[in-house]
Simulated scan of single mutants.
Amino acid sequence: MKDLVLFIAKALVDNPDQVEVREVTGEKATVLELKVAEGDRGKIIGKEGRIIKAIRVIINSASAKLDKRATVEVVE
């Protein structure tokens, strides 16, 4: 999951070197914390949050196939 988020995020931003993904595993779900450069945050979120919603749908579908739960959060 972490590699998938990293791949998608690096393809969307201007500064792919500053993309970081941290995986926090809990009892029931995994949270993938996505950190990008200040200027690229808008590109990851998109208009009305459409891009981050699409990333979450992809991760949700991929994790469901593995019988797990995962979500993506953008951190500052």
Score class of each variant (00 low, 15 high):
Met1Asp: 08
Met1Glu: 10
Met1Trp: 07
Met1Tyr: 07
Lys2Ala: 03
Asp3Gln: 14
Asp3Glu: 15
Leu4Cys: 05
Leu4Phe: 01
Leu6Ile: 06
Phe7Trp: 11
Ile8Asn: 01
Ala9Pro: 03
Ala9Thr: 04
Lys10Pro: 05
Lys10Met: 06
Ala11Asn: 11
Ala11Phe: 06
Ala11Pro: 03
Leu12Glu: 00
Leu12Cys: 00
Leu12Trp: 00
Val13Tyr: 03
Val13Ala: 03
Val13Pro: 03
Val13Gln: 04
Asp14Lys: 15
Asp14Gln: 11
Asp14Phe: 10
Asn15Val: 10
Asn15Gln: 14
Pro16Cys: 08
Pro16Phe: 08
Pro16Leu: 07
Pro16Trp: 09
Pro16Tyr: 09
Asp17Met: 09
Asp17His: 10
Asp17Trp: 06
Asp17Cys: 06
Gln18His: 15
Val19Glu: 02
Glu20Gly: 11
Glu20Asn: 13
Glu20Leu: 14
Glu20Thr: 12
Val21His: 03
Val21Thr: 05
Arg22His: 12
Glu23Asn: 06
Glu23Val: 04
Glu23Asp: 10
Val24Gln: 14
Val24Thr: 12
Val24Gly: 07
Val24Lys: 14
Thr25Pro: 09
Gly26Cys: 08
Gly26Trp: 06
Glu27Lys: 12
Glu27Leu: 13
Glu27Ser: 12
Lys28His: 13
Lys28Gln: 13
Ala29Phe: 09
Thr30Trp: 01
Thr30Lys: 05
Val31Leu: 01
Val31Lys: 00
Val31Phe: 01
Leu32Gln: 07
Leu32Trp: 05
Leu32Phe: 08
Glu33Ile: 08
Glu33Gln: 15
Glu33Thr: 07
Glu33His: 11
Glu33Tyr: 07
Val36Phe: 00
Val36Ile: 00
Val36Lys: 00
Val36Gly: 00
Ala37Met: 09
Ala37Lys: 06
Ala37Arg: 06
Glu38Arg: 12
Gly39Thr: 11
Gly39Ile: 07
Gly39Lys: 14
Gly39Glu: 15
Asp40Asn: 02
Arg41Lys: 15
Arg41Leu: 03
Arg41Tyr: 01
Gly42Pro: 00
Lys43Ala: 07
Lys43Thr: 07
Ile44Gly: 04
Ile44Glu: 04
Ile44Phe: 04
Ile44Asp: 02
Ile45Pro: 01
Ile45Thr: 05
Gly46Glu: 05
Lys47Val: 01
Glu48Trp: 11
Arg50Ala: 14
Arg50Leu: 12
Ile51Lys: 04
Ile52Met: 05
Ile52Asp: 04
Lys53Arg: 15
Lys53His: 11
Lys53Ile: 06
Ala54Leu: 05
Ile55Gly: 03
Arg56Ile: 06
Arg56Thr: 04
Arg56Phe: 06
Arg56His: 07
Arg56Ala: 04
Val57Ala: 14
Ile58Glu: 04
Asn60Met: 11
Asn60Cys: 11
Asn60Arg: 14
Ser61Tyr: 13
Ala62Gln: 08
Ser63Thr: 11
Ser63Asn: 10
Ala64Thr: 10
Ala64Lys: 13
Ala64Cys: 11
Leu66Arg: 15
Leu66Asp: 15
Asp67Ser: 15
Asp67Asn: 15
Asp67Met: 14
Lys68Phe: 10
Lys68Leu: 13
Lys68Met: 14
Lys68Ala: 14
Arg69Ser: 13
Ala70His: 04
Thr71Phe: 13
Thr71Met: 15
Thr71Ile: 15
Val72Lys: 01
Val72Phe: 01
Glu73Ala: 08
Glu73Ser: 11
Glu73Arg: 12
Val74Gly: 04
Val74Asp: 03
Val74Asn: 05
Val74Ala: 05
Val75Arg: 08
Glu76Gln: 11
Glu76Leu: 10
